[in-house]
Design a binder for these strands. Structure first.
Lengths: 356, 356
DNA sequence: TCTCAGCGTTAGATCGTTCCAAAGACATTA
DNA sequence: TAATGTCTTTGGAACGATCTAACGCTGAGA
C-alpha cells in the first residue's frame, strides 16, 4: 500500500535480485511477474508484486536494452525552424509524438539535424550504437535519401509527409491539403460565395499543388469556373500582396490562400483598397499559425491535426516494428477549417451569389 | 582508411571482443584504446585503431550505460504549446539544446509533460529507471516544485528561466528582459523619441515586471518621466487595444510592448485612429514571434537568444554533473532588438524630440 | 506400466562494456 | 643475482536484466 518509500536502508538502486530475495523467489520469477504475469501462480504473483511496491523497484532500462536488444527509443532528427515561416508546427507535433510514445512505453530521442538537405549522418550514428529501435522522419523532401537508406538496412521508420516522387517507400502519415482547401470552398459556397479565388505558391511544389487541387476540384464540383481565379506567389507577404491584385480586380468575393503568409498579403491588398477582410472579402489561410488568431480581423485558417499526426506516426511505427513484413500503410488526415472573423457567417456584400 | 565498410561477413553488430581478436589484443586493451589512449603503447594503439576503423566498430551505449551507470542522456519534459501564444520558442530552443548536447556526446530524451502545473511524475519515472543523467527544465513557474525535488535527490539539472521566488536553488539560464526593453528605449531615444510609453502585463508577473523595469530604468537614465506613460493589459490583442488608448491620448510617440501580442493590439488602436505604426508612432514588441516579421509594417521586436540559451543550459548542466558541489551558476543573456519598419530610422513625425 | 505434456519455478549462461587487481616485460638499482 | 620500480597488458568479475533449458511433480492417454 505505501507508495514508493524508496527503500530506506539500502543505498544503491533496487535490483531484481533484491526484490527476489525479499519475496522469497528467484530473480527470474520476478522478471516473469512483470513481463508475463500469467505464467505465475496468483499467490506468488501477489507476493512478488507486494515486494516490488514496497521496495519501489523499477527495472533498469540499460540492462533491459542490453539483454533484449531493444532500447525502446525512437529517434527524431530535429531541424532548426527556418525563420520567416509563420507556422511552427514542430513543437505541437513533437509533444503529441512524445505523449503517444510515453503511453506505449517508448521515448523520443532527439538529435540535431543540420539545416538544409537532411543528412544521413545522425541516423547512422544512432543506429551504429544501437541507440534506437526506429525513426520518425519529418520534413521529407522530394529527393529525400533517408527512406531508401533506412529501408535498405531494415530499420523501422515512419515519415511525417508523403513521398511525392519516385517509388514510395515505407509508411507515412500526412495531412490532406486538398481536403482542407476543398472544405474551405465548401464552407464559402454554403455562405453564398461563388467567385472564390485561390492564391497559391508557384506550381511545382508538391504541397502547394496539392492545396491548389482541393480548391480546383471543389470549384468544379459546384460548377464554378476557375479561370482567372487563380494566382501564385512565393511565400512572402509583399509578393502575395501584388499577386492577389488581379484576383480582386476580377471581382473575387473570397480568397483561399495556400498559407497564412499569403493570406496576410491579401489583407494588405484589401486594406490598401479601403476594403476590409471579412466584411467585404472573405479570406482563408492555411496552417493556422499563431498569428492567424491574433490578426484583426482574426484570420480563418485551415488547421493541421498535428496531435493526430503524432499519434498515427507512432501507431504506424509500432506496427512496422512488430511486423517488418507487413505491407506499407499510409495515412492521410484531413485538416479542419477554423472559422474566424475573416469569413463572416453572413452572405457576402455586393453581389455574392452572382454567377462567376 | 576505408570508411565504415560495415563488417561484411558477420551478421550481428561488431563487439569489442571481435575487434580485440582482430587486433590481437585483449578486449580491455581495446576499451583503453578508446577511453584512455595514453595508456597504450603508440604502436598498439595504432593497431587497435585500424581494427576499429576496418570493422566499423561502435561501442554499444546500452552496455556502457549498464557498466558506467551513466546514460549520457538528458531529460526534457516537453510541454504542449498553449494556443494563443504568438511566440513558439520551444523548437528553436530544443534544436539548440540538442545540438549542444550532440557535440558534448549527450542526447536529449523527451518525455511529455502534461499541460498546466509541471508534474513530478515524468521526472520520477525517468530517474527510477536510471534513464537520464540530468534534466533541463523549462517553463519554470513561481512555485515550481521541480527544482527542490531534484536538488533533494542530488540529480543534476538546469533551468531555462530563473527562480523568481523563494531561496534560489540550482543553476539557471535566463533572458534578461529588462536589458531588452532598456535597449529598445535606448534605440528610440537615439532616434529622437522622448515620450516613450510602455504597454505591459498586469503587475505581479515576474517576467512582465522585469520587462517593465528595463523600460523604467532607461527612461530614468535619460531623465524622462514615466508617469502617465505606462499601461497594462492581459496578453490579448483586444484588451491591449483598449489599454493603449490612454497612452496615445497622452501623446506618446513610441510604445514599447511586453509582447508581440500587445504590440499587435497597439497596431489595431493606431489603425482605428487613422495613424500608421512606424510612420506616426513607433512600436516595439517582445519575443520576435514569426508573426512580427509578417505584419505590415513589419514589427520591430526584441529577440530572445534561444540558441545561446540552449548552449548555456548544456554548459551549466555539464559543469554541475562533473562537480556536484560547485556553487550554483546563473547566466543572464541579453536579448537583441530586431529593428523593422515599425521603428523608422528617421526621427518621429509631429513633435518627436519635444520634452515629455 | 510407461510415456508425455503441462504446471510453476529456477539455475546458469548471456548481452557488451568497464573496473579492479594483478601479471608480465623490461630496465634500473642494490 | 635478486630486488625494485615503471610501463603495458590482461583475466576475471561485475553491471542488471532476460533467454533457454531444464527441474520435480501431477495426471491423462496408450
Amino acid at each position: 500500500m505505501p507508495r514508493i518509500p524508496r527503500s530506506p536502508a539500502s543505498q544503491g538502486p533496487v535490483t531484481l535480485a533484491m526484490v527476489a530475495r525479499r519475496a522469497g523467489v528467484s530473480p527470474q520469477t520476478v522478471s516473469n511477474a512483470l513481463n508475463s504475469p500469467d505464467l505465475l501462480r496468483p499467490e506468488t504473483l501477489e507476493r512478488v508484486r507486494e515486494a516490488v511496491d514496497e521496495m519501489g523497484y523499477r527495472p533498469s532500462r540499460a540492462a533491459q536494452t542490453l539483454r533484449t536488444r531493444s532500447s525502446k527509443l525512437i529517434g527524431y532528427g530535429i531541424q532548426p525552424s527556418q525563420p520567416g515561416t509563420a507556422a511552427p508546427i514542430m513543437d505541437r507535433f513533437l509533444h503529441a509524438l512524445s505523449q503517444a510514445a510515453d503511453e506505449a512505453g517508448y521515448r523520443i530521442l532527439l538529435f540535431a539535424s543540420p539545416p538544409g538537405e537532411p543528412a544521413l549522418e545522425g541516423y547512422e550514428e544512432l543506429l551504429g550504437q544501437h541507440e534506437v529501435d526506429g525513426f520518425v522522419l519529418s520534413g521529407t523532401a522530394r529527393h529525400d535519401p533517408r527512406q531508401a537508406w533506412l529501408a535498405k538496412r531494415g530499420v523501422p521508420f515512419v515519415g511525417f509527409g508523403r513521398m511525392w516522387s519516385g517509388r514510395p517507400v515505407g509508411d507515412w502519415v500526412d495531412v490532406d491539403g486538398a481536403s482542407g482547401t476543398d472544405a474551405a470552398v465548401e464552407h464559402l459556397v454554403a455562405l453564398g460565395h461563388r467567385r472564390i479565388a485561390f492564391l497559391g505558391w508557384p506550381r511545382g511544389s508538391d504541397v502547394g499543388d496539392d492545396r491548389a487541387a482541393g480548391w480546383q476540384r471543389a470549384m468544379r464540383r459546384h460548377g464554378l469556373p476557375t479561370r482567372a481565379r487563380r494566382a501564385q506567389s512565393v511565400d512572402d507577404i509583399e509578393a502575395a500582396h501584388a499577386a492577389v491584385e488581379p484576383l480582386l480586380d476580377a471581382g473575387a468575393t473570397a480568397v483561399v490562400a495556400a498559407s497564412d503568409t499569403l493570406a496576410m498579403g491579401c489583407y494588405q491588398a484589401l486594406r490598401e483598397r479601403g476594403a476590409a477582410p471579412g466584411r467585404d472579402i472573405a479570406v482563408v489561410g492555411f496552417d493556422d499559425s499563431p498569428a492567424a488568431a491574433l490578426l484583426s480581423p482574426a484570420l480563418s485558417s485551415i488547421e493541421q491535426p498535428l496531435e493526430a499526426v503524432g499519434r498515427e506516426c507512432l501507431r504506424l511505427l509500432l506496427a512496422r516494428m512488430s511486423d517488418s513484413g507487413a505491407p506499407p500503410e499510409r495515412v492521410l488526415l484531413a485538416p479542419s477549417l477554423v472559422v474566424r472573423d475573416s469569413v463572416p457567417g453572413t452572405a457576402p456584400g455586393p453581389d455574392g451569389p452572382a454567377a462567376g
